[in-house]
Structures are given as C-alpha cells and as structure tokens.
Design a binder for these strands. Structure first.
Lengths: 227, 227
DNA sequence: GTCTATAGTCGGATAGAC
DNA sequence: GTCTATCCGACTATAGAC
C-alpha cells in the first residue's frame, strides 16, 4: 500500500490551496484574507476549503505545518553538521572559534538560501512575523519545529566559543542576538531596505548581510576571549 | 486666541478614541479590529469615529501620527545630545570609541525606557511591526519621524567610530545591525521570551538586553580598529 | 471530490433627531 | 458633538445536486 506516485485530483487541489493560502495569508494576514480570494488564486472552488481543511482556520494551520516541514528539511543539514563538528573539538582547542564561526556560517547560509531562493519565502517571513506579535497555535507548530532547533544549535555554538554554560542567560542572549542581526532585516524589511537604499532583498543583499553578521560575530567572540 | 486649557468634550472623545484604537489595533491588527470594539473600549459612540476621523482608516493614521509624535518627544534628547557630542571630538581622537559607546548607550536607554515604561508601548511595537510587513501610508508617518532620525544618529556614530563614510553601505549596514540587536527582541518577542525562559519583557530583561548589546557593539568597534 | 446557491453573521458608514 | 437606527456590502460555512 504505497502512496500513489501520481497525485489524484484531490491532492492537486490541496496543493494549490496550500500554495495560494501561503501567498494570500502572507500578503493580507489571517483576518483580511478571504477564503474567496484564496480559492480564486488557487483556481478552485471556495467550498473546497471547507471540504479539505475544515475551514479557514484549518487551512491557516495547515500552511504553518507546511512551512515548518520545509524549513526543517532545508535547515536540518546545517544544524546537524554543526552539532557534529562541535562534538569533535575540545573546549581548550585554540582554533575552536574558527570552527564555531564555520558552523554559524553554515546556519546563516542555510537560512538565507532558504529565504533567498524560495519564491514563497517572503510570504513565510510575513506569516511568521505576524504570529510573533500575537501567537496562536500556529506559533507552536513553528517553534517546535525548525525554529527552536536553529536557536538551540546557535546556543550550543556560543557555549563552545565562549566557554559559557549553554543554559546561562548570558549565553542564550548572545545566541539570540546573533540570530537577530540576520533576522531583523527580514522582520523590519521596509525599514531595512529604506535605510540601505535597496529596492529588493535579493541574493546580493543577503550575502552582504551574511558577511557583515559574520564579521560582527567574529569580533564578539574574540572580544569574549580573555587572552 | 490661545488653545483652551480645559479640553472640551470633543477633545476628550478624540483622546479616548485614539487611546482605545492604539490598543485594539495593536492587539487585533487593522482588519480584525472593529470600529465597534474600539468605540466600546473608548466608552463612546461608534458613529463618532466617522465624525472625528472620517472613518476607520483615518483613525488608524491618526494613531500613527500620535505614536510618531510621542516617539519623537521621547527620543529627541538622546539623538540631539549624541550629535552634539560627536561634533566635539576629532576623528583621530583615541577615546572616540568611548564617546561613541556613550552615545549609543543614550540612544538605547531612550529607546528602552520608552518601550519599558510606557504602558502603551506593547501596542506601539505591534503596530509598527505589522506596518513593516506591508507598509501603508502609516509607515511613512513613522519613518519620516523619530524612526529615521534614530537610524541617522546611529549611522553617524558608526561613521565616527569606524572612520567609514556615513553614506557607505558598510557603515549603514553596521548601524542597522546595532539597532537590530535591541529591536529584534521586540519584533520577535514570542521567540525571544520563549528562548530566554522569560515570562515578561520588564525592566530587568530590557536592562540585560541593553548591556549585552553594548558589550557586542564594544567588541565590534574594537574589532574594526586596525591597531 | 467538486460545484452552485444561499443561509446567517458581522462590520463600516451614514442619515437625521437632539 | 452626540446618539439611535439602519442600510448594504462582504464574509464564512454549509446544504445538496452532480
């Protein structure tokens, strides 16, 4: 009883609705988005939302499950390789900072590739940022998935680089602020592009962000080392 | 023909509506917020929104003008003192980094005091972050006011500390990332509090954020200096 | 699984008395 | 300036034919 290789019509409808919902919810937010607009964008009948997802809210949650899954798939390699690399080095190793920076580079690269290459990524960011402001069940789906793991990996890296306990407030705050430098540009994209004089957030801009963030982290790690 | 010291009934209604609108728009977003809910929260009649602000959208814009005004009032001293201090030091002065850090400390303090002490601040942040995702006229009101000035002051400080041109991409990006470290916690408050194990974003937490951000900036500035 | 048609609800705006 | 009453459009959900 394998899954059918050729998706039947129902699966296609589901797919179309998920994709359209991602865009429309991302553009308009949950309340402003209408099921009619989503159905039109998907090219399917409005009543099918009720049939496939139970209703508007069911569709919304399904979109987040979809995002969390794709994020996991795209971020997992970087996070796992990082953890593996960290376990090979000793806390006294003099080049541990270089290793930590390589790990952060991997995580940033995974994150920014995900956001830069994926045509749906703008919608993802909008949805995630909306959820931050007043979280619903959808936030749990995300944080429990790739998001929390990424922060966990960053915390482990900071602990290794600085010698702090991974559970300490200082270590966790440092990790959060490292992520901040890359994510804030996404969160406050209008402010960021305006301030930088950019018209888009394309690969060039994302690379610039990554390089500057890495340089900052490098300085922070070296500043934390007592020579 | 001075303005009357004692506000008449109409002014009180305007005030009540603005305050209630800030909270309800902040909690629910523009579309999900209903004029009935706002009127109820303000304790006034729903039809008065049309009379005083022309309609729902007019009220929304008025809320942003109000926020921009209050932000300006609370941030202006820090920004102006910073600019003044910067003009007194030479680019070769060895302690210019200390001066720059003091300026950033002032700006951060102004920002965090505003957000920490003001009971409406949570609503402000929510509204501003929503606007970032798809900006309307309301964003212009904000960016043209205190927000842009704050970024301008930070850019000038970074230019002084690093010797970069204030117009350069590198300098502007560094300034943006300095602001990021404080603002991201507000923007992604749910992620931040969850990751840190906090239950609120009170004065204690804000102070911790400020200190860590200043330490990071200190490291970054020193990393930028070619000894 | 898909469609049409519609029931039922809610929200923004406004006319008009006071 | 404030209030009541109401209009009218837009929306979600669902019943029921195919």
């Amino acid at each position: 009883m394998n899954k059918p290789r050729i998706p039947n019509r129902g699966d296609q409808t589901r797919e179309s609705l998920l994709r359209a919902a991602l865009n429309v919810f991302g553009r308009d937010g949950f309340h402003a988005a209408s099921t009619r607009a989503i159905a039109d964008a998907a090219g399917v009948n409005q009543a099918l939302i009720g049939y496939h997802f139970g209703g508007k809210e069911g569709l919304y949650l399904a979109v987040f499950e979809d995002i969390a899954e794709r994020m996991s798939a795209q971020m997992a390699p970087a996070a796992e390789t990082s953890i593996a690399e960290l376990s090979t080095i000793s806390p006294e190793s003099p080049d541990r900072i270089d290793t930590c920076l390589r790990c952060i580079d991997m995580i940033f690269s995974g994150l920014l590739e995900m956001l830069g290459q994926n045509p749906d990524a703008t919608g993802w960011v909008r949805l995630v940022m909306r959820e931050q402001q007043d979280p619903t069940k959808a936030f749990e789906i995300l944080y429990g998935g790739a998001y929390g793991k990424m922060l966990g990996a960053l915390t482990a890296i900071v602990a290794t680089a600085t010698g702090l306990q991974a559970e300490s407030q200082e270590c966790r705050l440092k990790a959060l602020m490292i992520l901040s430098q890359v994510m804030f540009v996404m969160a406050a994209r209008t402010t960021a592009t305006r301030h930088m004089g950019w018209v888009t957030l394309g690969p060039t801009e994302l690379e610039m962000i990554k390089q500057q963030a890495l340089a900052n982290v490098y300085a922070q790690f070296n500043g934390d080392v007592k020579p």
